[in-house]
Design a protein around this nucleic acid. Structure first.
Lengths: 353, 353
DNA sequence: AAAGCACGGTAATACGCATTAGCAGTTGCC
DNA sequence: GGCAACTGCTAATGCGTATTACCGTGCTTT
């Protein structure tokens, strides 16, 4: 727009400077030394010198059109990534992604232009721009399987972060083994002697939520131990707390970390001591140190590694697995770390609950 | 690579489906209703229907090549943006950028592939990829003026975040008026009766550091009040503290927030009460609630707005100021908020310092 | 009836790059 | 000396889109 036509430095410009053809410039730049077209050192030098004199960089759009990659990895987040509330969730992922992107030599393209409907970005829309990138990482708690399948059909390389239900096994993802981790936590609680479990989870039917529930249920069923389940979106935790008191569990399993924090406040105000009267275990993300200095017993997803693995896998999918390296599995579940905090005690007889 | 040729849905595909030419499809999609080429509703419908049947999306690379911008805004951060230490600094900026990018309808390209030397990303290097984006935002505490001027010369649209020294006035930036804010803080301290100032700042000669110093010096000079200055990179705050004790100031002005936190710990261990024995004022970024629950009197840059203004300005520079809107100034300084915390008291005679 | 005209649409081209076929000049070989 | 093989390079083409120049067709006007 602002540039006059002549401003832009293209391969043709370089070619004229070096006294060769545009094709030669391209060949030099791409280091093609096929038997079909060799270029002697002298010519190569002239071209490279000409490039050095100018500020030439290949137009990525043109490269892309011409069918070669651009080393551009897209990042699609279903919610804005940087506001305080979501940043705790995305930042560790992005950190892993960024670090690995650096070593892979790729740039990151964030699709912030996607229109937002009902608080979620729309993957497919009029001016879908996914193709700007060579491949794409999909981040978000919940994704539409239909959309993902459509993406698979299009042949566009992508990797989802988080396990995805997909019987056909066509959706590549890197997820967290929440089921297993939750089972371990439940066994821990059982070992401490807990007998009455209460699970408070979020109302979405995202895979991550279901996995946690199934992990919990599996262990408790096996042990023939009682489990009460309830959901809350966090809007009325007072009510949730009243329901909990009524059920009189010995241990409370809370999916969402912020819910857990607020519940403890309510519980303490209600004269209940944690963990002496009631143990609490947290299954959630977004855990930052409690105001109260409470160190929850919880599970912690290895999110930087999640991001790192995802972009590594995507990179492999994009560039075709070089036969040198062992191909990565297209569906990965990472182990979740269990953090032994201070909120899982032994059940107390005659608890104040 | 993996795609067979026929897979890809292009305008030609649509054209065949609708029984028109590729050109017509393009015209329909871009709503060109020039007198030179009108298209009746009937045809338009057929084309749109055909598009609806397929999963067609315009190839952004092709559009870009064809001369329409691709609404890509680059973000160059001199350090990795997401690790914990830097994230506190970048996240608020990115939040403002993201939000505004959304409403401007542009995508964000993060240049993570730039090689790192001495812990800082290199703006210019072999495979400089800035041109991938239509324009670029530059984030970082310190930037090389030479590099920035080279960027100006290239005609590439960019906006720096943070004030930049540049007598020629060619570098567009959106910065924070640290000088003024620091002056205000100093006046506040003077008004409370402080007579001995001690400034502890970071060793860089970044504009932001200098601005704070100059704002401080201006007010104190005017008031003919004593000021001791020292620098620290935070590696030996014990030594810094010993120097402070020796100087016996009534108020301590600390540039870096994390230094301030750690200094308070040292001071308290040393039997000094804040703010009764010693007042502290913080000029720095990256302030998160203290472990100790200490609420520093400090200044807080409006970082989300910084980001927002920067991308708005860049967008205007990229697209040429539409004559409809008032053109934005290419060099902006935003007012800094002063937060009246609990660490600036009145000086105490016979302080324990 | 010839000329003008609006309409509806298409062919052709440019954008910058990668890639292939192939051309002219040189060298190698028997 | 004749032919093949090789060397060093270029012309031509395609990628998918936007845009311009232009061409039929049927209708109106004189």
């Amino acid at each position: 727009m602002s540039h006059t036509k002549s401003q832009r430095v293209t391969q043709r410009t370089i070619a004229e400077l070096a006294g060769v053809s545009q094709a030669t410039v391209s060949l030099v730049l791409n280091g093609k030394a096929d038997s079909t077209s060799r270029i002697p050192e002298a010519t190569r030098r002239r071209v490279l010198d000409a490039i050095a004199e100018t500020t030439y960089v290949a137009d990525p759009a043109a490269r892309s059109l011409a069918g070669v990659g651009n080393d551009l990895v897209g990042i699609f987040t279903y919610e804005p990534a940087f506001p305080q509330e979501t940043s705790d969730f995305y930042a560790p992922l992005l950190m892993g992604i960024e670090t690995t992107a650096e070593s892979l030599g790729v740039d990151l393209l964030m699709f912030t232009s996607a229109p937002i409907v009902d608080g979620r970005r729309q993957l497919f829309h009029e001016k879908n721009r996914l193709r700007l990138a060579d491949g794409c990482l999909l981040l978000g708690q919940k994704m539409d399987t239909g959309e993902l399948n459509r993406l698979v059909d299009s042949g566009y390389p992508f990797v989802a972060i988080g396990r995805r239900d997909d019987p056909a096994g066509r959706i590549p993802y890197v997820g967290v083994d929440y089921a297993n981790a939750t089972s371990t936590l439940a066994e821990l609680a059982l070992a401490r002697g807990h007998t009455r479990f209460y699970s408070l989870h979020v109302p979405t039917d995202a895979e991550s939520t279901r996995d946690r529930q199934s992990g919990l249920v599996r262990v408790l069923d096996e042990a023939r131990v009682e489990l009460t389940s309830a959901t809350t979106d966090g809007s009325d935790l007072e009510a949730a707390w009243r329901a909990i008191r009524k059920a009189q569990p010995t241990v409370l399993i809370v999916e969402d970390a912020t819910h857990a924090h607020r519940l403890v406040d309510i519980a303490v105000a209600d004269g209940v001591d944690v963990p002496n009267d009631l143990s609490i275990v947290v299954l959630g993300e977004r855990t930052r140190p409690s105001e109260r200095g409470l160190d929850f017993t919880r599970l912690a997803a290895p999110r930087p590694q999640l991001g790192s693995n995802a972009i590594t896998l995507l990179h492999q999918i994009m560039n075709g697995s070089s036969d040198a390296v062992e191909p990565l599995p297209h569906r990965q579940l990472l182990e979740c770390v269990i953090i032994e905090g201070a909120t899982l005690g032994a059940p107390r007889i005659g608890s104040n609950l």
